[in-house]
Design a protein around this nucleic acid. Sequence first.
DNA 1: AAATATTATTTGTCTGACAAATTAAATAAC
DNA 2: GTTATTTAATTTGTCAGACAAATAATATTT
Lengths: 250, 250
Amino acid sequence: MERLKIQNNSVTLVDQVEDKLLSYFREKDLRKGDAIPNEMELTVSLGVSRSVVREALSRLKMMGIVETRTRRGMILSEPSLLGGMKRVVDPRILSEDTLFDILGFRIVLEIGICSEIFRKITPADIDSLEEIVNVGIMYENNEYAPFSEFAFHAKLYKITGNKTIAEFQNIIHPVMTFVKDKFQEFLAPINIQLKEEGRIVTHQDLLQYLKDGDEDGYRKALEEHFEVYRIFVNRKNEYNAAMKNGKDND
Amino acid sequence: MERLKIQNNSVTLVDQVEDKLLSYFREKDLRKGDAIPNEMELTVSLGVSRSVVREALSRLKMMGIVETRTRRGMILSEPSLLGGMKRVVDPRILSEDTLFDILGFRIVLEIGICSEIFRKITPADIDSLEEIVNVGIMYENNEYAPFSEFAFHAKLYKITGNKTIAEFQNIIHPVMTFVKDKFQEFLAPINIQLKEEGRIVTHQDLLQYLKDGDEDGYRKALEEHFEVYRIFVNRKNEYNAAMKNGKDND
DNA sequence: AAATATTATTTGTCTGACAAATTAAATAAC
DNA sequence: GTTATTTAATTTGTCAGACAAATAATATTT
């Protein structure tokens, strides 16, 4: 009874309850592991039906904010910062703009961790990287076997000791392979061009800078290592603009 | 009828349906704006009850993957990469470790965009930053009025032109203010110490490097600007370790 | 032919029910 | 009296059916 009719503008009861639950957790200063009221209690105290409460809870469960053990009730758990991203990062449902943003994000991140790497890298890390580089066959023109490509950069992120950054790298990795695959025709000529100009920076080159402890050299080399993507994004944007002008209505 | 009893290990029907829906969208190669079957059709074709379908859909709605207009049915929409993060980034429910990871993430990001900034910055951007710096009163010891602090760094992210990075900055901003607030007692003495050593880098200093086009100088200054947080995290970790040894059972 | 009224469809919400699991309590066995 | 077994109670997970509200599609009236 007393059905709320506030849902004028697509703000549903479920949305409201989701908010209210989060506010409630904050208000009560509940921490990880603390129990929260069961569904019936929430139903009563929020004045909505169980299905609405369940839908809202379902969302929070997906995000890893609440956890439920049958019969023992529900508890708060610590959500993974990036957990929600996992489901969304499907290159097929992301727009080209966002894909390129992610590409840029990744490059920025890897350049940003330079100083952190040089601060924390150990001889064991160097050995580990060396091994990865050795088993990694470079196919041709700046393209590595997918595994070694991933392993090399993943190792770099790991050296920082920042789990969130490492996890982020894991999540956006599918985007990288998707872009490489889908835009092969754009990337290949750029790599050839860079090769002709002698501007290809290999993993081996990067490793050498790490061995030498040459941070500035490493950073510059890394920028060059990613140059192919910078050129690609610029070229693709020009290409898209040209296509748009060509057939104006699409 | 024929209730699936596969939910042995806390994998509920809703979880399965959520997965199936995402697979279905991929399989059918549905894009942004495409219509998806209505609830009853999904109910029938998935062989589950409407409530299960609704809970799964509710999750996808929250993530911005599907959108619903009453009566017109549901359509696929492009999710924001970071949309899911917004709900999770409540400093109160994140562990200290994750908070520090985010702190590190932010620093890495801001250092990583250096070269991008110098590549794209315009005289208008300089003017804009100058204005922000001028209205920004530095309280004392490396601490700015919250607004100018945010505005200055937000502007830097904006210059990159990468919307995803800018959005990310927006989302983690609450974490920054929370950390500053909560760990005031740890941060204050560090800032005082840095000041005595003449190592405080102000926004004004950073701006000068931008004006001069001195990228390396800017990067080094920025690292110094964030030094307080590096020292803080190290010191806090030592403190926590000491506390843990002090009273072993907690 | 245009404006209005009706109908049908679809999401949002409510209510009530049962299953499964598991903890808590009660009973039986030693 | 203590331990093992059985029973009961609780809570989440799922199903089923109903109605409201909004709106697109259709039919009706002017």
